[in-house]
Design a protein around this nucleic acid. Structure first.
Lengths: 126, 126
DNA sequence: TGCTATAGTATATAAAAAGATACTTAAAAT
DNA sequence: ATTTTAAGTATCTTTTTATATACTATAGCA
C-alpha cells in the first residue's frame, strides 16, 4: 500500500488542494494562527497606528510579544513598518495591500463573534 | 490620570467594542487561534469525519494534539463529538450550527490564501 | 543636571504547546 | 493464542510562547 501522506480528499476546491503542502487553507491557518494577529490586523484597519497605540488596545500583552507578532506579520507581508528617524522614536504600522484584503474576512468574524456572544451570554471572550 | 486599560477607541463597531473584555473580535481571536482549528473546521464542512480521517488529512499532527484541538472546539460549541458504543471504537465529529456559521468565513479565507499564493509563488504554506 | 518620552533590545525565567513513545480496551479475525 | 482495529490516555522530553525586569538611545525640557 502506497503512502497517501497529506492528500486532501475532502477539500472543497480540489484543483487547489490536492496536497497539504500547497493548500491555501494551510497557508491561512499558519498566517493567522498567532495569538494576537487577528486583533492587530483589526486595529490597523482603523488607520496606521504607532507601537504604543497598538499596545494600549491590548491590556495583557508584553512589549516583547507584541514586537514579535508585528515582526511576523511584517515578514508575511500583511503589515508594513515605517520608522521615522526622530527622537524619541516614532514607528508607524499599517496594513499592506495584502493585509487590507483580509479585512472583509475580519468583518465577518466580528459578525460571527457578536452573534455567538448573543447566543452564549455566559461566555467570556478572553 | 485614570487608567484606560482595555478601552477600544479604534474598534469599528463601537457599540459592541467599547471594552476589550466584551469585544466579539477578542472572542473570535481566542476561538480560532489554535494551530489546527481553522483546518479542522474546514475539513468537517465536507461532512462528519471520524478521528482517524481527520488525522489522515494532517500529516504532521500527533494524536494527542489533535485530540486536544478537537476537545477545545467541542467545548466552544463549534463541533460535536458522537461516540458509538462499539468495538473497536467509532467516534464521529461534525460541525454544530455555530460551527457551520463559520464556513463562509473559511471560504473567504481560502480565496485569500489562493490569491496570496499566486502573488507570492515562493511562499511555502506550511 | 537630571527627567521624560518612544520604541524598542537583552537576559533570565516560567508556563504552555507540541512531540515521541508506550500503553489501554474489547471484540473479531487469523 | 495472537493479532488487528479505533480512539484514545499516560508519561516524559523538547520546543515555543510568554512574562518580568532591566537596559539603551537621544533630543528637548525644567
Amino acid at each position: 500500500m502506497t503512502s497517501n501522506k497529506g492528500i486532501h480528499e475532502a477539500c472543497f476546491m480540489k484543483e487547489k488542494c490536492l496536497q497539504y503542502d500547497t493548500c491555501p487553507m494551510v497557508l491561512v491557518q499558519n498566517l493567522l494562527a498567532g495569538k494576537r494577529k487577528i486583533l492587530i490586523l483589526w486595529y490597523l484597519n482603523y488607520g496606521t497606528l504607532r507601537f504604543n497605540e497598538i499596545k494600549g488596545k491590548m491590556p495583557d500583552v508584553t512589549q516583547k510579544m507584541l514586537t514579535q507578532q508585528l515582526r511576523s506579520l511584517e515578514q508575511d507581508g500583511l503589515i508594513y513598518r515605517n520608522v521615522y528617524p526622530v527622537v524619541p522614536p516614532k514607528v508607524e504600522y499599517g496594513l499592506t495591500e495584502s493585509g487590507k484584503r483580509i479585512i472583509p474576512i475580519l468583518k465577518m468574524m466580528h459578525g460571527f463573534g457578536a452573534h455567538y456572544l448573543e447566543k452564549n451570554p455566559d461566555v467570556d471572550p478572553q
